[in-house]
Amino acid sequence: MKSERFGPWLAMVLGTLYFVVPLIATFEFSLRKRRGVYSFDAYASVFSDSRFIESFGYSTFIALLTIVVGVLLVVPTAYVIRLRMPRMRPIVEFITLLPLVIPAIVIVFGYLRLYNSSSFLPLTGTARSTDLLLVFAYVVLAMPYMYRAVDTGLRAIDVKTLTEAAESLGASWWTILFKVILPNVRVAVLSGAFLTFAIVIGEFTIASLLNRPAFGPYLQLVGANSAYEPSALAVIAFVVTWACMGLIQLFGSGIRGSSAAPR
């Protein structure tokens, strides 16, 4: 039995080393700004940079919009497909998986060709409409995860019975969707939302090519121009990602009766 357990332990130890050492190294590096002693100077310099606050705030706002648009788009679709149009399911699932096939850079390239300022729908014409295009791009990017999360949530509840019960009590479809179905899959929606947030907050390619003042391009800019601040920013980004995933776990396991653990 002892020899049988050696392999797994070795795998775990090596895995832990590979995954933890870069985190320690990044943290250590971020403390080196002041010569000779460890200090939090790099963090102080990051937090006092107004562009940090602005770009992080901007990306947070865009992420929240993305979540709202994504939920409004995905929840009704997943619900209707499950309840009324099961035969459309393969098509919808195929579409939601497309963003994993088509690289983000290709999608945004397509936007720039299709929605340039002299096109029929000049979304890249003004700053506000480009913001909107950025939100839409992120909804596309998050769609595979959002749809999967919501669909898993819907599978766990009895959609048919809930709908019939609500209908027999005279509820309108609006009431059914937002007062019956949505609250019942809130855990799934939340886990999709946090995942979306984690993906969107530091996204670089699309924001940079659409020329928006988001957090990702700011990170890249800092990385090209300073030594210790990037490590501090990487630590911050890791904490944000960790917080999002932690919240998914917390909501996923903390509330009884709804299984929404990310698969």
Binding site: P22, T26, F29, S30, G202, F204, Q220, L233, A234
Partner: peptide, 9 residues
């Protein structure tokens, strides 16, 4: 981007 920073460090 942050992953790149981590590995540079």
């Amino acid at each position: 981007v942050p992953l790149a920073f981590a590995f540079i460090a």
